[in-house]
């Protein structure tokens, strides 16, 4: 019981860090800064999903984290490709 609570508290702390990264997403001067912030948010959200899946004791719900870890990589690659070819 106490283990699950500590996992949930750690996930809440990471959610606070996501708020800090959202600030950089809002004020970043160049689009590359915003892309870096989005990449950081992706990693944090994967960690949050794994922690919450353990805290809820539902193993089926952790598949979302796996799917998201792979799909966010595709999104990052897409943004990078647009950045290097679309800016001129």
């Amino acid at each position: 019981m106490i283990g699950e609570l500590s996992l949930a508290v750690a996930a809440a702390v990471l959610l606070g860090y996501v708020l800090v990264c959202t600030l950089r997403l809002a004020i970043g001067p160049t689009p590359a800064d915003r892309a870096v912030a989005l990449d950081t948010i992706n990693t944090l959200v994967v960690a949050i999903m794994v922690l919450l899946g353990a805290a809820l004791n539902l193993m089926i719900i952790m598949d979302v984290a796996l799917v998201y870890a792979l799909l966010s990589f595709v999104g990052t690659l897409y943004v990078a490709r647009y950045l290097q070819e679309g800016l001129r």
């Binding site: 996501v18 997403l25 970043g28 689009p31 915003r34 989005l38 948010i41 992706n42 959200v45 647009y82």
Partner: peptide, 14 residues
């Protein structure tokens, strides 16, 4: 518009 698309991605993620 690129920044707006990135913000939209963050919105879907959250």
């Amino acid at each position: 518009l690129l920044a707006a698309a990135l913000a939209l991605g963050a919105q879907g993620l959250l």
